Simulated assay, not measured.
Amino acid sequence: MNLQPDHNPTEGSSAPRGWLRATIVAAFAIVFVGAGVGFVGFLSQLRAVEVSPSSKADGIVVLTGGSSRVSDAMELLAGGYGKRLLISGVHPTNDASDISRSLPDNQSLLSCCVDLDRSAVNTRSNAAETRRWARERGFKSLIVVTSNYHMPRAIVELSHAMPDVELIPFSVIGDKWRDEPWWTSGATLRLLLSEYAKYVAAEVRVRLAELGLEMSPEIADQPTGSLRSPRTAAAN
Rank of each mutant, 00 (worst) to 15 (best):
L77N: 00
S97Y: 13
I219H: 09
Q107W: 08
D115K: 00
G59V: 00
P9F: 06
W19L: 14
L116V: 07
L116C: 07
D95N: 15
A35G: 11
R137I: 09
T232G: 10
A127G: 04
S13L: 12
S147Q: 11
L76I: 10
A220S: 14
V144R: 05
P92Y: 13
R47K: 15
T64D: 12
A235C: 07
I173F: 02
P5G: 02
W182C: 05
R84P: 01
I87M: 00
R153G: 04
D95C: 11
T232P: 04
D164P: 04
R69N: 06
D221C: 14
V31P: 05
E180V: 14
K83L: 03
T146M: 09
V49W: 12
Y149E: 00
M162R: 01
P92I: 15
L109I: 01
V62D: 03
A187S: 14
H91D: 14
W133S: 02
R132T: 06
V49Y: 13
H91G: 11
Q4K: 05
P163Y: 08
P92G: 13
A78I: 03
V62C: 04
L85C: 06
L46A: 05
S44K: 07
V49Q: 15
A127Q: 02
H150K: 05
R124L: 06
A233E: 12
N126L: 07
S125R: 12
S68L: 10
M151C: 08
E218S: 15
C112A: 12
R132N: 07
D179C: 07
S171W: 01
E129I: 09
A234M: 06
Q107T: 07
F39I: 04
S102L: 09
D58R: 06
D105E: 10
G66F: 08
S67G: 13
G41V: 11
G212P: 01
V61T: 13
Y199G: 01
V204Q: 04
E136M: 14
H150E: 03
S14F: 13
N122A: 01
R137F: 08
E50G: 09
G79W: 06
E214T: 11
P9H: 10
R153P: 02
F32E: 03
D179Q: 14
V145H: 01
A233W: 08
M162C: 05
S141H: 04
V204H: 07
L86H: 00
I168L: 08
S216H: 09
R118F: 10
T64M: 09
T188I: 14
T224E: 13
G18A: 13
S97Q: 15
R231E: 10
D117T: 07
D179T: 12
L208E: 09
N148W: 03
N106A: 12
S111C: 14
D72F: 05
N236T: 12
W183K: 09
A120G: 12
V51K: 10
G36N: 11
L103P: 04
A120T: 08
I30S: 14
D221Y: 10
R153L: 10
L158E: 00
G65P: 03
G186T: 15
I99P: 00
G59D: 01
M74I: 10
A96P: 02
L3I: 10
R153C: 02
A22D: 11
S147V: 05
V204C: 01
L76H: 05
G34H: 09
